[in-house]
Amino acid sequence: MIVIESLTKHYGPIAAVDGVSMTIERDSITVIVGTSGSGKSTLLRMINRLIEPTSGRVLIDGRDTASESGHRLRRHIGYVIQGYGLFPHRTVAHNIATVPRLLGWDENRIRPRVAQLLEALQLDPAVYSGKYPHQLSGGEQQRVGVARALAAEPAVLLMDEPFGALDPIIREKAQDDLLEIQRKFGTTMVVVTHDIDEAFRLGDRVAVMSAGRVLQYDRPEVLVTHPADPLVARMTGSAERAMRLLSLTTAGEAALPLTPGEAGTGGPAVPASASLRVVLSELLWHGSESATVIDGDGTPRGRLTVAAILARARAR
C-alpha cells in the first residue's frame, strides 16, 4: 500500500504538485491521468524520489520513503518510462539484470529470473537474451523495459506513459499484456498517462489531475457516473473509444440473468436490441443504477447495471 500525504513540489513560485493526498491499494492498478503540465509525472517521480518533494511524505507499506537514500529506495521500486531508456550498450539480458546486479544478487539467481521474465513477456530467451536494444522493434523494447523494471521483484511498479511510443494496434496488445502481468505477479502499479481511454482500460482506480491537484480519485465507473468536477466530466465524456465499443454490443447480449422474483424491480425498461451505449445514456439520464432488459413482446429478459456496462467497456 502506498500512502501519499499532502505531497507538494514547488519550482520557484509555481506549484507543480499542490498538496496531493491519496492512498493506493496493494496489488491494484492506479492510473493518474491528466494533460501535460498537470503535475502527474512530477507526482509519480516523487514516489520514487527522482524528484524530492518540497513538503509532504510518501509511505510504502508503512515505511517513510525518506528514511533511506534515494537510489537505494529506487532499487526496490520498478520504473518504466516512455521511450524505455534501455541501455544501448548492453544486451537484453544484461539490461534486465541491471537492478538485481545493483542489489548484489547471485548470478545463479539472476539467470533464471531473466529467462522467466522474458518468457512471461513472450520473448523467447534463446532468441532475445543476446540481442541489443537497437535490434528490437518498438513493442519488443517496451516489453524489455517492463521486464527490466520487474527484475528485482519490486512490490511497486511506476510507469510514466509506458505505451506512449507505441502505435495504436500494438498499444492495445501491450495494455492487455500488462493486465496479464499484473494478475501473474500481483504488483502494485501506478501508471501515468494522458489518455483517458488507457486510464479506463487499465485502472482499478483512476486519479484525474489538473494544475497540480487531484480533482477526483475513484473507480472508473464513478468518474463517469458522478464526476466531481466539470473537467472530469469533460475528460470522461471524451472517452469516445470506450463508447464506440459499447455501441457495438446489444443489451440482449450483455444482459445479466434475472434473480427469481426480481422482475421489473426498478429502473427504466430497455429493449434487448438497444446498444449498451444507449442503455448507459438512458441510465445516466434517469440517474438510475440498473435497468430491465425486455424482449420485443415486453417480457423481462435480464438486467443491466452501470458497473456491468463499464466493465464491458474496459474489457473491450
Partner: peptide, 12 residues
C-alpha cells in the same frame, strides 16, 4: 521529453 529527474540533486 524534458526530465526534471535530471535536475535531481542530493540534499547535502
Amino acid at each position: 521529453m524534458s526530465s526534471p529527474g535530471l535536475l535531481m540533486r542530493r540534499p547535502a
